[in-house]
Design a protein around this nucleic acid. Structure first.
Ligand code: ZN
Ligand code: ZN
Ligand code: ZN
Ligand code: ZN
Lengths: 177, 177
DNA sequence: TCAGGTAATGTTATAAAGTAACGCATGACT
DNA sequence: AGTCATGCGTTACTTTATAACATTACCTGA
């Protein structure tokens, strides 16, 4: 519910309750392939599958949850899930992180598909404590305020983590439409 | 080096290399006592000791490091360190967090003394990847940008995490003014 | 001053998250 | 084909965090 497919303009982010998420996933995978091709990176079946599992989850998902699903998954060819161990998943996630295809939510120890992997950005997230959804925003005012502050102090920015916990509009008591 | 005693104005934060940190610690403990008294909270010897250990560390410190030091510490009465186990430390840290006396740095799984525990605030941190120091800033432009964004989306903010990784001026090679 | 409750701490065990190290397999490149 | 680098399987382990229950310290009102 959280991953607004094309909505990078806040307002719609938490409102798409019943969208066709399978479509989001498909699209994300296609974009990921394009990006990897462009960057000369190999989106192997395993990595692809992990990315798909992360995207399929409507909420940020922990590495061990990914692992469990990976093991449960039945391959398209009929064979059963991979005999995966933690390093398998962590390596795939590291790859996906490196190429900006997923983000890690530090305050949850969890991972989520990047909503706009084209641009270079650290993620900014609004995380609902009630429904668990995390909406990725990319507000330039926030980024700029942080950069300005760092520059003033002489601090060289590498990675920026912005995670806002609270309640999404749907869970705030507002009866959802 | 990081905990600027009274400096809440960015510029000085990373520059106080050789300050009297023992003084910072003392002051922090006094302020903590005042706050706990005011709030009717009990800053027990254990909690006080944990707070002191966190403050003594110049860098954000992990719970298990606190634990180790707690066990090593020799009490003023001559008795040896406490027979502490993880829950002991985590409970103390939870207490300190609840009362705003320390912050947790999510991206490091570590804790750091709050530089200005008077005000109600989530922490914003600039974390040097080289020297490990973390400077707490409190920039209203950042806070406001985040609040505005949330309000626009209808998101109710509970806790805000801002953690900026990079290099402090002292570690950037830039000769500090 | 002593029951009786509540809050704090001790204690044991276990869960959850993450990584090191090694070897084989696969694929890219010559 | 041979060689090198990358990806992945596997084992074992480390680090971080919590659950559950026992015990102790502290307060408060008979
Ligand atoms: Zn993103
Ligand atoms: Zn919600
Ligand atoms: Zn603070
Ligand atoms: Zn530094």
């Amino acid at each position: 519910m959280a991953h607004a497919p094309a909505a990078s303009d806040g307002t719609a982010i938490f409102e798409q309750a019943e969208h066709d998420h399978a479509h989001c996933v498909d699209q994300a995978l296609h974009v990921a392939e394009a990006i990897c091709t462009r960057e000369g990176a190999r989106l192997t079946p395993l990595r692809r599958q992990v990315l798909e599992l992360v995207w399929r989850s409507h909420e940020p998902i922990g590495a061990y949850d990914v692992l469990a699903r990976l093991q449960r998954e039945v391959q398209t060819d009929g064979t059963d899930g991979r005999p995966a161990a933690p390093p398998t998943v962590y390596r795939a996630l590291d790859f996906l992180l490196k190429h900006g295809l997923v983000h890690r939510i530090e305050s949850l120890n969890a991972y989520v598909g990047c909503a706009h992997p084209q641009q270079d950005h650290s993620g900014q997230f609004l995380i609902c404590q009630e429904c668990g959804n995390a909406a990725e925003i990319e507000d330039d005012t926030i980024s700029k305020a942080i950069r300005d502050n760092a520059r003033r102090i002489g601090f060289t920015v590498d990675r920026v983590t912005v995670e806002v916990s609270g309640r999404c509009p749907r869970c705030t008591g507002a009866p959802h439409a």
